[in-house]
Computed example of a mutant assay.
Amino acid sequence: MLLRKYVREDLDSIAQINPFAAVQLQYNQSILPENIVCAECDGSVIGVGFLLLHQTLETQKLQITFSTYTDNEHQDNIEADGLLMDGLINRFHQIKKEKPDITVRLRECCETDEIDDMQFFIHKGFSIHSAIPVLKYDLTKEIAHYKIPEAITIQKLTFDETNMKAYLDADSLSSREWEYECEADIWFNTGDPSFSCYAAICDGKIIGAISIWNISEERAATENIFVIPEFRRKNIARELISTALEELKNSNLKIATLSVNGANLPAMKLYLSSGYSLYYNLIEMLCE
Protein backbone atom coordinates (compact mmCIF):
# COMPACT_ATOMS: atom_id res chain seq x y z
CA MET A 1 0.00 0.00 0.00
CA LEU A 2 1.38 3.41 -0.94
CA LEU A 3 0.41 7.06 -0.77
CA ARG A 4 0.60 9.31 -3.80
CA LYS A 5 -0.65 12.60 -5.16
CA TYR A 6 -4.07 12.83 -6.75
CA VAL A 7 -4.44 13.14 -10.52
CA ARG A 8 -7.67 13.95 -12.33
CA GLU A 9 -7.80 10.47 -13.84
CA ASP A 10 -8.46 9.15 -10.30
CA LEU A 11 -11.92 10.72 -10.25
CA ASP A 12 -13.77 7.69 -11.65
CA SER A 13 -12.14 5.40 -9.09
CA ILE A 14 -13.01 7.82 -6.29
CA ALA A 15 -16.63 7.96 -7.49
CA GLN A 16 -16.77 4.18 -7.06
CA ILE A 17 -15.47 4.54 -3.49
CA ASN A 18 -17.82 7.39 -2.56
CA PRO A 19 -19.89 9.41 -5.07
CA PHE A 20 -20.15 12.43 -2.76
CA ALA A 21 -16.36 12.57 -2.41
CA ALA A 22 -16.07 12.76 -6.19
CA VAL A 23 -18.66 15.56 -6.32
CA GLN A 24 -16.72 17.50 -3.69
CA LEU A 25 -13.47 17.16 -5.63
CA GLN A 26 -15.17 18.41 -8.78
CA TYR A 27 -17.16 21.34 -7.41
CA ASN A 28 -15.96 22.46 -3.96
CA GLN A 29 -13.45 25.24 -4.52
CA SER A 30 -12.18 24.84 -0.94
CA ILE A 31 -10.41 21.69 -2.16
CA LEU A 32 -7.24 22.30 -4.16
CA PRO A 33 -5.54 19.51 -6.17
CA GLU A 34 -2.32 19.83 -4.17
CA ASN A 35 -4.30 19.07 -0.99
CA ILE A 36 -5.61 15.68 -2.17
CA VAL A 37 -3.88 12.35 -1.55
CA CYS A 38 -4.72 8.84 -2.72
CA ALA A 39 -3.96 5.48 -1.15
CA GLU A 40 -3.15 2.83 -3.73
CA CYS A 41 -2.90 -0.95 -3.44
CA ASP A 42 -1.87 -3.26 -6.30
CA GLY A 43 -2.27 -0.41 -8.78
CA SER A 44 -5.82 0.51 -7.72
CA VAL A 45 -7.04 3.52 -5.73
CA ILE A 46 -8.48 2.21 -2.47
CA GLY A 47 -8.78 5.49 -0.58
CA VAL A 48 -8.72 9.26 -0.87
CA GLY A 49 -8.19 12.09 1.58
CA PHE A 50 -8.36 15.84 1.14
CA LEU A 51 -8.04 19.07 3.06
CA LEU A 52 -10.71 21.77 2.89
CA LEU A 53 -9.30 25.27 3.38
CA HIS A 54 -11.95 27.49 4.92
CA GLN A 55 -10.47 30.85 3.94
CA THR A 56 -12.66 33.69 5.19
CA LEU A 57 -12.54 37.47 5.38
CA GLU A 58 -10.69 37.00 8.68
CA THR A 59 -7.32 36.92 6.91
CA GLN A 60 -5.28 36.24 10.05
CA LYS A 61 -6.86 32.82 10.59
CA LEU A 62 -7.20 29.75 8.42
CA GLN A 63 -9.19 26.76 9.57
CA ILE A 64 -8.66 23.48 7.73
CA THR A 65 -10.87 20.41 7.94
CA PHE A 66 -10.45 17.11 6.16
CA SER A 67 -12.27 14.05 4.85
CA THR A 68 -11.03 10.55 4.15
CA TYR A 69 -12.79 7.73 2.32
CA THR A 70 -11.78 4.12 1.67
CA ASP A 71 -13.39 1.37 -0.38
CA ASN A 72 -15.49 -1.36 1.23
CA GLU A 73 -12.59 -3.78 1.47
CA HIS A 74 -10.50 -1.29 3.45
CA GLN A 75 -13.18 0.19 5.71
CA ASP A 76 -11.71 0.69 9.22
CA ASN A 77 -8.33 -0.49 7.93
CA ILE A 78 -5.75 1.02 10.28
CA GLU A 79 -2.99 1.00 7.66
CA ALA A 80 -5.10 2.76 5.02
CA ASP A 81 -6.55 5.29 7.49
CA GLY A 82 -3.12 6.00 8.94
CA LEU A 83 -1.53 6.41 5.52
CA LEU A 84 -4.14 8.92 4.36
CA MET A 85 -4.05 10.83 7.66
CA ASP A 86 -0.25 11.04 7.65
CA GLY A 87 -0.34 12.46 4.13
CA LEU A 88 -2.91 15.09 5.10
CA ILE A 89 -1.07 16.09 8.27
CA ASN A 90 2.20 16.44 6.34
CA ARG A 91 0.43 18.70 3.84
CA PHE A 92 -1.10 20.70 6.70
CA HIS A 93 2.36 21.39 8.14
CA GLN A 94 3.56 22.47 4.69
CA ILE A 95 0.69 24.96 4.51
CA LYS A 96 1.61 26.31 7.95
CA LYS A 97 5.17 26.93 6.74
CA GLU A 98 3.83 28.66 3.62
CA LYS A 99 1.70 31.00 5.77
CA PRO A 100 3.93 32.03 8.71
CA ASP A 101 2.04 35.27 9.39
CA ILE A 102 -1.36 33.73 10.13
CA THR A 103 -2.80 31.19 12.56
CA VAL A 104 -3.51 27.88 10.83
CA ARG A 105 -5.19 24.92 12.50
CA LEU A 106 -6.49 21.50 11.47
CA ARG A 107 -9.86 20.56 13.00
CA GLU A 108 -11.86 17.38 13.50
CA CYS A 109 -14.91 16.55 15.63
CA CYS A 110 -15.74 13.17 17.15
CA GLU A 111 -18.83 12.06 19.02
CA THR A 112 -18.18 11.40 22.69
CA ASP A 113 -18.48 7.62 22.32
CA GLU A 114 -16.00 7.45 19.42
CA ILE A 115 -13.14 6.64 21.77
CA ASP A 116 -11.08 4.71 19.22
CA ASP A 117 -11.27 7.60 16.75
CA MET A 118 -10.23 10.13 19.39
CA GLN A 119 -7.31 7.94 20.41
CA PHE A 120 -6.29 7.60 16.75
CA PHE A 121 -6.20 11.38 16.32
CA ILE A 122 -4.33 11.92 19.60
CA HIS A 123 -1.63 9.55 18.31
CA LYS A 124 -1.51 11.67 15.14
CA GLY A 125 -0.83 14.86 17.10
CA PHE A 126 -4.31 16.23 17.77
CA SER A 127 -5.32 17.60 21.17
CA ILE A 128 -8.78 17.74 22.72
CA HIS A 129 -9.84 21.36 22.54
CA SER A 130 -13.50 21.81 23.51
CA ALA A 131 -16.98 20.34 23.72
CA ILE A 132 -19.46 21.14 20.95
CA PRO A 133 -23.03 20.46 22.09
CA VAL A 134 -25.48 19.49 19.37
CA LEU A 135 -29.02 20.69 20.10
CA LYS A 136 -32.27 19.48 18.59
CA TYR A 137 -35.68 21.02 17.97
CA ASP A 138 -38.82 18.88 17.75
CA LEU A 139 -40.54 20.04 14.56
CA THR A 140 -43.78 18.26 15.43
CA LYS A 141 -44.59 20.93 18.03
CA GLU A 142 -45.85 24.46 17.49
CA ILE A 143 -43.24 27.04 16.53
CA ALA A 144 -43.30 30.35 18.39
CA HIS A 145 -42.72 33.62 16.54
CA TYR A 146 -41.28 36.85 17.87
CA LYS A 147 -41.90 40.54 17.30
CA ILE A 148 -38.96 42.31 15.68
CA PRO A 149 -38.47 46.03 14.84
CA GLU A 150 -40.68 47.19 11.95
CA ALA A 151 -37.67 48.35 9.94
CA ILE A 152 -36.35 44.79 9.77
CA THR A 153 -37.62 42.12 7.40
CA ILE A 154 -36.65 38.47 7.04
CA GLN A 155 -36.22 37.24 3.48
CA LYS A 156 -34.96 34.14 1.75
CA LEU A 157 -31.59 35.08 0.28
CA THR A 158 -30.67 34.19 -3.29
CA PHE A 159 -26.91 34.13 -3.66
CA ASP A 160 -25.33 36.08 -6.49
CA GLU A 161 -22.02 37.93 -6.38
CA THR A 162 -23.58 41.05 -4.82
CA ASN A 163 -25.51 39.17 -2.13
CA MET A 164 -22.52 36.95 -1.42
CA LYS A 165 -20.32 39.95 -0.68
CA ALA A 166 -23.02 41.55 1.49
CA TYR A 167 -23.49 38.28 3.39
CA LEU A 168 -19.77 37.76 4.01
CA ASP A 169 -19.33 41.39 5.07
CA ALA A 170 -22.14 40.99 7.62
CA ASP A 171 -20.78 37.67 8.85
CA SER A 172 -17.35 39.26 9.38
CA LEU A 173 -18.97 41.76 11.78
CA SER A 174 -20.65 39.08 13.88
CA SER A 175 -17.65 38.32 16.13
CA ARG A 176 -17.93 34.57 15.58
CA GLU A 177 -14.13 34.11 15.60
CA TRP A 178 -13.32 30.74 13.96
CA GLU A 179 -16.92 30.28 12.80
CA TYR A 180 -16.92 32.78 9.91
CA GLU A 181 -18.13 31.21 6.69
CA CYS A 182 -16.05 30.53 3.60
CA GLU A 183 -17.31 31.77 0.22
CA ALA A 184 -16.34 28.55 -1.56
CA ASP A 185 -18.29 26.48 0.99
CA ILE A 186 -21.41 28.59 0.50
CA TRP A 187 -21.27 28.32 -3.29
CA PHE A 188 -20.90 24.54 -2.93
CA ASN A 189 -23.84 24.37 -0.49
CA THR A 190 -26.10 26.27 -2.89
CA GLY A 191 -25.88 23.25 -5.19
CA ASP A 192 -27.88 21.26 -2.61
CA PRO A 193 -31.62 21.60 -3.44
CA SER A 194 -32.47 21.49 0.27
CA PHE A 195 -30.19 24.43 1.12
CA SER A 196 -31.78 27.77 2.02
CA CYS A 197 -30.53 30.90 3.70
CA TYR A 198 -32.77 33.43 5.44
CA ALA A 199 -31.41 36.92 6.03
CA ALA A 200 -32.56 39.73 8.29
CA ILE A 201 -32.51 42.97 6.29
CA CYS A 202 -32.45 46.56 7.58
CA ASP A 203 -32.19 49.54 5.21
CA GLY A 204 -31.17 47.18 2.43
CA LYS A 205 -28.30 45.65 4.42
CA ILE A 206 -27.92 42.14 5.79
CA ILE A 207 -27.69 42.23 9.59
CA GLY A 208 -28.20 38.55 10.38
CA ALA A 209 -28.82 35.16 8.81
CA ILE A 210 -29.44 31.44 9.26
CA SER A 211 -28.82 28.55 6.85
CA ILE A 212 -30.68 25.24 6.63
CA TRP A 213 -30.23 21.99 4.72
CA ASN A 214 -31.37 18.39 4.98
CA ILE A 215 -29.21 15.82 6.75
CA SER A 216 -31.59 12.87 6.33
CA GLU A 217 -35.23 12.26 5.46
CA GLU A 218 -36.29 13.37 8.95
CA ARG A 219 -33.48 15.64 10.13
CA ALA A 220 -32.24 19.04 8.96
CA ALA A 221 -29.47 21.39 10.02
CA THR A 222 -30.10 24.93 11.28
CA GLU A 223 -26.61 26.40 11.28
CA ASN A 224 -24.48 29.49 10.65
CA ILE A 225 -26.73 31.69 12.77
CA PHE A 226 -25.52 35.22 13.36
CA VAL A 227 -26.72 38.76 14.06
CA ILE A 228 -24.29 41.67 14.02
CA PRO A 229 -23.72 43.15 17.52
CA GLU A 230 -25.67 46.42 17.25
CA PHE A 231 -28.87 44.55 16.33
CA ARG A 232 -28.77 41.93 19.07
CA ARG A 233 -31.36 41.63 21.86
CA LYS A 234 -34.15 42.59 19.47
CA ASN A 235 -35.53 39.04 18.89
CA ILE A 236 -33.93 38.96 15.43
CA ALA A 237 -32.02 35.72 15.99
CA ARG A 238 -35.12 34.09 17.48
CA GLU A 239 -37.30 35.10 14.55
CA LEU A 240 -34.66 34.00 12.02
CA ILE A 241 -34.64 30.60 13.71
CA SER A 242 -38.45 30.41 13.80
CA THR A 243 -38.72 31.32 10.11
CA ALA A 244 -36.25 28.58 9.19
CA LEU A 245 -38.00 26.06 11.44
CA GLU A 246 -41.35 26.81 9.76
CA GLU A 247 -39.88 25.95 6.35
CA LEU A 248 -38.51 22.68 7.69
CA LYS A 249 -41.78 21.82 9.42
CA ASN A 250 -43.71 22.52 6.20
CA SER A 251 -41.30 20.19 4.39
CA ASN A 252 -42.27 17.39 6.80
CA LEU A 253 -38.92 17.24 8.56
CA LYS A 254 -39.13 15.92 12.13
CA ILE A 255 -36.00 17.24 13.84
CA ALA A 256 -33.81 20.32 13.36
CA THR A 257 -30.33 20.36 14.86
CA LEU A 258 -27.56 22.87 15.40
CA SER A 259 -24.10 22.83 16.93
CA VAL A 260 -22.68 25.48 19.23
CA ASN A 261 -19.41 26.11 21.02
CA GLY A 262 -19.95 24.84 24.55
CA ALA A 263 -18.19 27.90 25.99
CA ASN A 264 -20.61 30.28 24.24
CA LEU A 265 -23.10 30.55 27.10
CA PRO A 266 -25.20 33.39 25.58
CA ALA A 267 -25.77 31.34 22.41
CA MET A 268 -26.58 28.22 24.45
CA LYS A 269 -29.16 30.16 26.49
CA LEU A 270 -30.67 31.64 23.32
CA TYR A 271 -31.14 28.27 21.64
CA LEU A 272 -32.45 26.50 24.75
CA SER A 273 -34.95 29.29 25.41
CA SER A 274 -36.01 29.11 21.74
CA GLY A 275 -37.12 25.50 22.17
CA TYR A 276 -33.98 23.47 21.42
CA SER A 277 -32.77 20.80 23.83
CA LEU A 278 -29.49 18.94 24.28
CA TYR A 279 -29.11 16.04 21.84
CA TYR A 280 -25.49 14.84 22.06
CA ASN A 281 -21.96 16.23 22.30
CA LEU A 282 -19.07 16.44 19.88
CA ILE A 283 -15.46 16.69 20.98
CA GLU A 284 -13.49 19.24 18.98
CA MET A 285 -9.90 18.14 18.31
CA LEU A 286 -7.18 20.36 16.89
CA CYS A 287 -3.76 19.93 15.35
CA GLU A 288 -1.88 23.24 15.55
Score class of each variant (00 low, 15 high):
3 L>R: 03
4 R>I: 02
8 R>Q: 14
12 D>Q: 14
13 S>D: 13
17 I>F: 04
19 P>Q: 09
23 V>I: 15
28 N>A: 08
32 L>S: 08
34 E>I: 09
39 A>R: 00
44 S>C: 10
46 I>D: 05
48 V>M: 00
50 F>Y: 15
52 L>V: 12
53 L>D: 01
57 L>K: 14
58 E>A: 12
61 K>C: 03
62 L>V: 02
69 Y>V: 09
69 Y>F: 09
70 T>E: 01
72 N>K: 12
77 N>R: 00
83 L>P: 01
83 L>Y: 00
83 L>M: 04
91 R>D: 08
97 K>I: 11
98 E>Y: 07
99 K>G: 01
102 I>M: 03
108 E>K: 12
111 E>V: 10
114 E>R: 06
116 D>I: 13
117 D>W: 08
118 M>E: 08
133 P>M: 03
137 Y>C: 07
138 D>I: 07
146 Y>R: 02
154 I>V: 05
158 T>Y: 10
158 T>H: 12
168 L>M: 12
170 A>D: 03
173 L>S: 08
174 S>E: 01
175 S>T: 11
186 I>M: 07
190 T>Q: 13
204 G>W: 03
210 I>D: 03
211 S>K: 09
212 I>R: 03
219 R>V: 15
221 A>K: 07
231 F>R: 06
231 F>Y: 15
232 R>S: 09
241 I>N: 00
250 N>M: 08
256 A>H: 04
264 N>F: 10
267 A>Q: 11
268 M>C: 14
268 M>Q: 15
268 M>D: 00
268 M>H: 11
286 L>Q: 14
